[in-house]
Structures are given as structure tokens and as C-alpha cells.
Design a protein around this nucleic acid. Structure first.
Length: 422
DNA sequence: TCTGGGGTCCTAGGACCC
DNA sequence: TCTGGGGTCCTAGGACCC
């Protein structure tokens, strides 16, 4: 066994991922400052050409146009980014099954023992994977090799773009000494502030604190896990197999411009409910609880959470519950900028529970009508069939795009509206 | 830096049960 | 009818992540 790598964990991180995918899909964009996020008016991802011109994430498009008139601003295309992400996972998966699909542009892989199997040092194996990723995707990756996830993340960030950094056990100190506590994975916000105040403002100073120090300051498991990993221990397991059921599903959307209209906001929420329920049905899951919120222009949240006696993924049902309690979060005259819904306590459709009132039966028959909805939507595009209560949200969107009469209308079947507002 | 959309994990505290 | 102590399950909400 390799003394420096009791476990060999690799972190792959796509460089400027969304912007890079855009450049790969459209060769005219290569070498140009590309910015994604056009639909929200602020930069989401930037090509390195754009970064060189002093543009940063979150910058307003209006400002970007002034600063960099040659900038190419595009609308986010998450479907394509997802396809590239999938290719990335499958290439890594040809080396090991132990892979965590951490996010759309990152993954972890556990290659422990592969050195002996392939008769190559870990460093060479990782270089080989990196080359293959870059050749077949046309995108560069920041890559880190370390004894655990926390250190692998630090490594992949160390040398951007297109870097490959190795942190063996014996070299940990060199990497942690200059590293601000805020850039450690998991200590980004208030917890980093807290640690810095207590004198641990670098990763190394935190790692050097004795165990008793953590106890005395009442640091919980989250801190302790990071602390152990900074000291070289393998604590955070990889989450394998990202397919399958999820724990919760949410759908939220900001509306531009913000609105005071009760009916408009209600229909926005209804649209979110449909999206979330559709996703739940695709996962073959039902929710045991729902919560919904409105977000004001001042960024305050007003939320209600509801427990369901019978699990459901039926938007008419869900909207029925929300309708009854909508006015607990909505206030007349207040300007709102976003709404959202979360389906909680998801269970798979197979695990049905018996109840006293036969509601299961009733829902089962409704469930069939939504199978029809999903089939139609798959064939003709999403939201071809939708709830009456979502109508205002959908038509407003079309009008704002300047589409007067869409051919979609012909295929549209409006289901009965449960909401009081139309 | 005035701020998309979608998640996960941890913890405190309540409900309920011996 | 009252009391204690201990355990498990569940949820809300906070913090953090990309």
C-alpha cells in the first residue's frame, strides 16, 4: 500500500464549465469572452477570456456590455451542460465504479488500489484520465489527488486552469499554511468567520488545534469532520450512485419584473408546483409534505409548511392545499420577486400505506390521468398540458418573448383549475 | 457582489412509547 | 391518577454547497 495515500481520492473540476461548453458547441465563440446567464441579467459562468477582462460572477450584464463591448452573452443551456457532465462521469467511470457525481461540473473518484491493478503510480493514472477528459470533451479540468475529499478539493483549485495538483500526506502542511480558512470546503460562511475570530484564520492553524479545543468551543460534527480531513484522515465518504430517489425536490423561480398581483404570484407558484410534481413522478416518488414560500423584493422569505395525510405527486392536489393557506404568506401591496415550492419527505410509489378512508384508491385513479399528462408532455414538449391555475404564468411568459400565437396552443388542454384565482 | 435555481446534511426539539 | 427516565421517530430550520 502507498504510505502517502491510504486512500487515493481524486477531484475533477471543469474549468469555466458552462462557458466552455458553449465554446465547444459553437466554434465561433472560441477565443472570445463568453458569459452565460443572459436570462437573469447577471453573469453565471465566464470564459477565461472574459475573466481576463476583469468581469466576474454576478456582474450585471449592463455593466459587462460597457466594460467589454465585444462580450458574447448567451442564455444558459442547462440541458447541454448536463450532457457534457454525463460524458465526464462516464469517462471517469471506465476507471472506477467508485465515483460521486457531485455537481454538474465536478466529480470525485476513489482510485484506491488502482495503482497496483494497473501497474502505474496514482499520479500517472490521474494524468491519463485528465488527458482523456480533455481530449474527448474539449474542456480543461482542474484536478486534485489527495487522501480525502477535502484535500482533493483544495488540490484541484490550487492551479487553475488545467492544473493537476497532488497532496500526499507528508506535504499537507505546505498546502494548508497559506490557505485562508474561508476557502476550505464547508467553512465558507459564518463558520469561517467564527474560526477566524478564534485565531484559526488559515486552514493550517485550524488543523493544528487540539481535539479538546473543538470540544471546548462546542464545534459539532461538521467542523470535526473537516478538521480530521485537514489532518489527513479519510472521513467523508463518496456518495455513489446518484441515480434513484432523492430526498426532496424544489422548484423556485424569480419573476422579472417583481409583482404585487396576487393572481400572478399564485399562478407562478402553480407553475413551480407542476414542475416539482412532474419531477417527483419521473422519480416515481410522492411527497409526504410540502412547503411553499414567497420572497419579497427585500429578500425576506415567508413560508408555510404542510403535512399531508396521504402522499401525493399530483399538482391539483398540492395546489388545493396551497390555495387554502396562500394568504398566510401573501400580503396586499407587497412587492414580491420570487416564489417556490419544496416537496419533502419523498417516498417511492411502491411503499404505499394503508389508510382508513380509502383515499389511496381515489388518488390512484387521478394518478392515471397524470400519466397521460406526462406522456403528452414528453412527446410535445414540457408544459404542453398544464393546470388552469398556471395559465397566467405561461401566457405572460410567451407574450414577454414576443410570441403572439404559438402553435403549442393547438395542442393545449387545460385541466380544471382548483385555485380560486385565475 | 445587492443576490439564479436546486440541493444536502446537521441539530434541536416535539410527539409518542414504554 | 401521578410520576420518572429513557428511547426512537420525525420535522423545521439553519448552514453550506455548486
Amino acid at each position: 500500500m502507498n504510505a502517502n495515500f491510504p486512500r487515493a481520492i481524486v477531484h475533477f473540476d471543469g474549468d469555466a464549465f458552462f462557458a466552455s461548453v458553449e465554446q465547444m458547441m459553437n466554434y465561433k465563440l472560441r477565443g472570445k469572452p463568453v458569459i452565460t446567464g443572459g436570462e437573469r441579467g447577471a453573469a453565471t459562468s465566464l470564459s477565461y477570456e472574459a475573466k481576463k477582462r476583469g468581469i466576474h460572477r454576478g456582474m450585471r450584464m449592463s455593466e459587462i456590455r460597457i466594460r467589454c463591448p465585444e462580450a458574447v452573452i448567451v442564455t444558459s443551456d442547462y440541458r447541454s451542460y448536463g450532457i457534457y457532465a454525463h460524458r465526464m462521469y462516464s469517462i471517469v467511470r471506465t476507471y472506477t465504479e467508485k465515483i460521486e457525481e457531485y455537481s454538474i461540473d465536478e466529480c470525485f473518484a476513489d482510485i484506491t488500489g488502482l495503482d497496483e491493478k494497473m501497474g502505474m503510480p496514482y499520479e500517472e493514472i490521474v494524468m491519463k484520465i485528465k488527458d482523456e477528459l480533455e481530449d474527448s470533451l474539449g474542456i480543461t479540468f482542474g484536478v486534485g489527488l489527495a487522501p480525502n475529499k477535502t484535500l482533493a478539493k483544495i488540490a484541484s483549485k490550487a492551479n487553475k486552469p488545467a492544473g493537476f495538483t497532488v497532496i500526499p500526506l507528508e506535504k499537507i502542511k505546505d498546502f494548508l499554511e497559506p490557505l485562508s480558512i474561508h476557502s476550505v470546503w464547508g467553512l465558507g460562511g459564518a463558520s469561517g468567520q467564527h474560526l477566524a475570530k478564534l485565531g484559526a484564520d488559515t486552514a493550517y492553524l485550524f488543523a493544528q488545534k487540539p481535539d479538546i479545543w473543538l470540544t471546548e468551543h462546542h464545534f459539532g460534527k461538521a467542523y470535526r469532520d473537516v478538521w480530521l480531513e485537514l489532518n489527513g484522515h479519510f472521513i467523508k465518504k463518496l456518495t455513489l450512485e446518484s441515480l434513484g430517489p432523492t430526498d426532496s425536490i424544489m422548484s423556485t423561480r424569480t419573476f422579472t419584473p417583481p409583482s404585487v398581483s396576487r393572481s400572478y404570484i399564485f399562478s407562478q407558484l402553480s407553475k413551480n408546483v407542476e414542475r416539482a410534481c412532474e419531477k417527483a413522478r419521473n422519480h416515481n416518488q410522492k411527497a409526504r409534505g410540502i412547503s411553499f414560500f414567497l420572497k419579497t423584493q427585500e429578500f425576506t422569505y415567508h413560508a408555510v409548511s404542510i403535512e399531508l395525510t396521504v402522499p401525493t405527486a399530483d399538482p391539483t392536489q398540492v395546489m388545493g392545499f396551497i390555495d387554502k393557506r396562500f394568504d398566510e404568506v401573501y400580503a396586499e401591496g407587497v412587492l414580491y420577486r420570487a416564489s417556490g415550492v419544496t416537496l419533502r419527505g419523498l417516498i417511492s410509489n411502491e411503499s404505499h400505506m394503508l389508510d382508513l378512508f380509502g383515499e389511496i384508491q381515489e388518488l390512484a385513479s387521478k394518478g392515471r390521468s397524470f400519466q397521460v399528462v406526462d406522456t403528452v408532455n414528453k412527446k410535445y414538449g414540457r408544459q404542453t398540458m398544464f393546470l388552469g391555475s398556471s395559465l397566467q404564468a405561461l401566457t405572460t411568459k410567451k407574450l414577454s418573448k414576443g410570441v403572439k400565437s404559438s402553435p403549442i396552443q393547438k395542442k393545449t388542454m387545460i385541466l380544471p383549475c382548483l385555485g380560486t384565482v385565475y
